[in-house]
């Protein structure tokens, strides 16, 4: 039973990772990030319930807050990019290389 739950959350996590790695649009990648964090939250909540550990649940709350902060920062950066008139797209970010 635990294995099934766990494998789905890890599957979700790697889906998020795939989104971040494969997708070209930055917003989609941001979503992928949030997916990864939420997948971890699900597994953390499940395990906290299993080990009946209150501290883990508090951790989930904090992780959610941190994820939000992350999203805010990500959005700000992407908005900045768009304000410059550049495509919010990976291929636009080729300037720095070598």
């Amino acid at each position: 039973m635990t294995a099934l739950i766990y494998s789905t959350t890890i599957l979700l996590f790697f889906l998020g990772l795939a989104a971040v790695v494969l997708r070209r649009q930055l917003l989609a990648m941001l979503l992928g990030l949030e997916l990864m964090v939420s997948a971890v939250n699900v597994s953390l909540v499940y395990l906290a319930g299993l080990f009946s550990d209150a501290q883990a649940l508090a951790a989930v709350l904090i992780i959610i807050a941190v994820a939000a902060a992350e999203a805010v920062v990500g959005l700000t950066l992407i908005i900045d990019l768009r304000e410059q008139g550049r495509e919010a797209d990976c291929s636009a970010l080729r300037e720095l290389k070598g």
Partner: peptide, 14 residues
């Protein structure tokens, strides 16, 4: 405004 909403809304969680 969306961003500001997110910032202040999450605090509710605490």
């Amino acid at each position: 405004f969306a961003v500001l909403f997110v910032v202040f809304d999450v605090d509710l969680a605490f």
